Simulated assay, not measured.
Amino acid sequence: MLAEKFKLVAKFSLLSLALLFPMVPASAQQSVAEFIREGCKEELAQYCDSVTPGRGRIAACLLAHNDKLSEGCELAFEAGVLQLSIILNTVNYVIEQCSSDIDEYCDGVPVGGERIAQCLSKNMDKLQLECKTAFSQAKEDLR
């Protein structure tokens, strides 16, 4: 079922955190990335300047040099990971509340790129109350 596949992707994302940013709404992932970029400016310039951004490569670079990170960068990275964890827990909650609606209205919609969220938005008037509530609250929380 699509909802179960989406749930597995979200759980895997939670475990790999920064490696699957595409699971997270663009505005939320941008704020997490900017927060880490700002707190780790020097380390990014020194250790990760030649790393191509995307697919968690920057995060992996910082993790590879974790023994050389300043306290400020460590704190920024940990705070960013915490932000992402909260975001992914929110996404997982919506998946749990909307599982049957995702299966009914979004079957065949590819996972990723916010397509499931777009599908739920398009079908908002048909969604079960639990799904509507969770989805609406998540949209507010993730702005």
Score class of each variant (00 low, 15 high):
residue 99 S to T: 04
residue 119 C to W: 10
residue 107 D to L: 11
residue 119 C to R: 08
residue 113 G to V: 10
residue 116 I to N: 05
residue 91 V to M: 10
residue 138 A to C: 08
residue 114 E to T: 03
residue 124 M to L: 12
residue 116 I to L: 11
residue 93 Y to V: 07
residue 93 Y to R: 06
residue 123 N to Y: 07
residue 95 I to Q: 05
residue 91 V to W: 02
residue 122 K to I: 00
residue 137 Q to S: 12
residue 115 R to D: 06
residue 122 K to L: 05
residue 137 Q to N: 13
residue 96 E to I: 13
residue 104 E to H: 08
residue 118 Q to L: 09
residue 96 E to K: 14
residue 105 Y to H: 14
residue 133 T to K: 13
residue 113 G to T: 08
residue 106 C to Y: 01
residue 114 E to I: 02
residue 101 D to S: 09
residue 139 K to I: 14
residue 130 E to H: 09
residue 102 I to Y: 03
residue 136 S to V: 08
residue 139 K to Q: 15
residue 108 G to R: 11
residue 105 Y to A: 14
residue 107 D to E: 13
residue 100 S to N: 14
residue 138 A to P: 04
residue 123 N to W: 04
residue 136 S to G: 13
residue 137 Q to P: 01
residue 104 E to Y: 04
residue 119 C to G: 11
residue 129 L to C: 04
residue 111 V to K: 00
residue 107 D to A: 15
residue 131 C to G: 02
residue 119 C to A: 08
residue 104 E to W: 02
residue 95 I to M: 07
residue 93 Y to H: 11
residue 120 L to D: 03
residue 120 L to T: 02
residue 138 A to M: 11
residue 122 K to Q: 13
residue 94 V to C: 12
residue 99 S to R: 12
residue 141 D to N: 05
residue 117 A to N: 01
residue 127 L to I: 09
residue 129 L to D: 10
residue 120 L to W: 03
residue 118 Q to N: 10
residue 106 C to H: 02
